[in-house]
Design a protein around this nucleic acid. Structure first.
Lengths: 254, 254
DNA sequence: CGCACTTTTGAACAGAATCAAGTTTTGTGG
DNA sequence: CCACAAAACTTGATTCTGTTCAAAAGTGCG
C-alpha cells in the first residue's frame, strides 16, 4: 500500500529528494524519517499531518496576499514564485520555490498570507495545517527543532538576497542567481550544468531588482564571455568556476 | 522582590514596553504574561529561561559570523546593528535592533551565527538558551506559537526590506527607513516625530543599498522639501503624511 | 584643544533604466 | 498541423539616478 504523501521528509532531507518518488510509493517514509530519530509511533502521527494534496495548473495561484492562513504548503512537484506587490504595481519577487521547499511561513505572524504564490508550471503541493504541525511537534522534539531550522534557513536565505540586492552589480546578481539554481537543481537529482528556467526575464528581474532588459543583457554578456550558453529558457553552465569568480567566490575548484 | 529580567514579555508585547521598566521592578511579569494565557505555574518555568544578562559597550560585538550558537538574545536596552560581510569587504546591514527585539534567529539553522551583531550604543541583552526555549515551549503551546510568530515576523520584515532594495529609489528607501524608525520609537514610548539616529550615514547606506553620500543627499533633499529637519544625528519629522506619500502610502491621515 | 571621524556638497562618470524597434517563441483556435 | 496573435526576448540609443572622486566643514572624544 503506497504511503500518503508526507512532505516533511522532503523538507528535512532535500538531498534525498532524488529518491523520494520511489521512496513514497514503497512506503519509504520510515527510512527517510529514521535519520531524524523518529520512532515508528511518531511516524504514525506524521501521517495525520498532511490534510490533502492540491494540484495546480501553470499560472494558478496557491494563495494571494491577505488570504487567511491555516496551512503551510510543501511543494511536491513543480515550481512556484512568491511576490509582494507595491500599490503602484511594482512587484518584488521574494523567492522561487521548488520541490521539497516550504511555502507560507510568512503568514504565521499575522495569520494571513503576506504575499502571492503562483505556480510557474503544473505543480502539486501538500497542505500542512499549521495548528496540527504545532501540536504534533510538541510531542516530537526533533520535529520541532527541524521546523525551527527550516524557518531559520528562510531567514538566512532572505539575508543572502538582501546582500545581493544591496551590494551587487547586475552581472553579479544574475550570476549568483544562476549558481543558486544550479545548486538546487543538482540537489534534486538534476544536472548542475544544464537546466530549464521556469520563469520569465521579467520575473528574474523582479527578483533581482533589475529591469528585464538588463537581465537579458547580462545573460548575453555571460554568454559572450563563454561562461554560459543560453537559448531562450535553456541554460547551460559552461564555466562554473568562472561564474564563482564573478561573485567573489574565488574558489577555483580542484 | 524585583523580578529577574524576562525578555519574553517584551517580545510578545512591544506596545507595553514603555511600562516594562516599572513592571519588571515591581514583578509585573505576571501581568504582562497573563494576556497570553499563561498560568502562574507556566510563568515560573519562564524564569528559568533567561540564563544571564550581558552588558555591552558601544562598538562591542554581541557575536560574530561563524560563532557557535546556543542562545538567542533579547535586547533589553540599547541599539544593535546586524550585518553580513562579503569577502571583498562589502557590508550588507541586515537590520537594526532595539529594545524588545530578538537577535540570533538566523543561527538556528546551522547552529552558528551567520552575521555580526554589534552594539551601536551601550546595551544590555538577556541570553535565552535555545534548547531551553524549545523544551519549555513544548509545555506551553501559546509560548511556542508566540515564538513561531516572532520568527515569521522576521521573515515578513525581510521581505519588506527586499521590496525596498529591489524596487525603490534612494529617496523612497530613506523615507521608508525613517517612517519605520519613527514607528518603532513611538511604540517604545518615545516620540514619533523626533529622535536620535544611532547609526552613521554609512550604516544607513549599507542597510539601504546606497552609498553614504547618497544617503546624505537624500536627507538634504527631504529637509529642503520641508518634510524633515535634520541636524547631524537628530531627526525631526515635520510632515509624516508627506513622507508617507513618497513611498506611495497615500493615506493623508485625518 | 587637536585629531580622527563623520558629514556635506560639488563635479565628473558609470551602470542601469527607459524608450524604441525588431525578432523569436509560445499558445490558441481553426 | 498550421496560421496567427500575443507574449517574451534581444539589441540599440538615450537618459537619468546613483556612484565615485575630491575637498571642505562640522562634530565629538580623548
Amino acid at each position: 500500500m503506497p504511503h500518503p504523501a508526507t512532505p516533511l521528509a522532503h523538507l528535512s532531507f532535500p538531498h534525498l529528494l532524488p529518491h523520494i518518488k520511489t521512496a513514497c510509493s514503497t512506503c519509504g517514509l520510515r527510512e527517510l524519517c529514521l535519520p531524524v530519530g523518529l520512532t515508528p509511533l511518531e511516524i504514525e502521527s506524521l501521517d495525520e499531518l498532511v490534510e490533502r494534496r492540491r494540484s495546480l495548473k501553470r499560472g494558478e495561484y496557491l494563495h494571494r496576499n491577505g488570504a487567511p492562513f491555516h496551512a503551510l504548503f510543501a511543494v511536491r512537484q513543480g515550481f512556484f514564485k512568491t511576490s509582494v506587490l507595491h500599490e503602484d504595481g511594482r512587484e518584488q519577487v521574494t523567492g522561487f520555490q521548488m520541490s521539497g521547499e516550504l511555502l507560507g511561513m510568512d503568514a504565521i505572524s499575522s495569520e494571513r498570507h503576506t504575499c502571492d504564490a503562483v505556480a510557474l508550471e503544473p505543480a502539486e503541493v501538500c497542505e500542512v495545517p499549521f495548528a496540527k504541525l504545532e501540536e504534533i511537534s510538541r510531542h516530537i522534539p526533533t520535529l520541532m527543532n527541524h521546523f525551527h531550522k527550516i524557518m531559520s534557513r528562510e531567514i538566512v536565505r532572505d539575508h543572502g538576497v538582501m546582500l545581493l540586492l544591496g551590494s551587487m552589480s547586475a552581472e553579479e546578481r544574475l550570476t549568483a542567481f544562476l549558481l543558486n539554481l544550479s545548486h538546487r537543481f543538482s540537489t534534486r537529482g538534476g544536472s548542475s550544468s544544464a537546466f530549464q528556467l521556469r520563469m520569465t526575464r521579467e520575473d528574474i528581474g523582479n527578483y533581482l531588482g533589475l529591469k528585464l532588459e538588463t537581465v537579458s543583457r547580462a545573460f548575453s554578456k555571460l554568454q559572450a564571455d563563454g561562461l554560459i550558453k543560453i537559448s531562450n529558457k535553456h541554460i547551460e553552465i559552461r564555466d562554473p568556476n568562472g561564474l564563482r569568480k564573478i561573485i567573489g567566490n574565488e574558489f577555483t575548484g580542484r
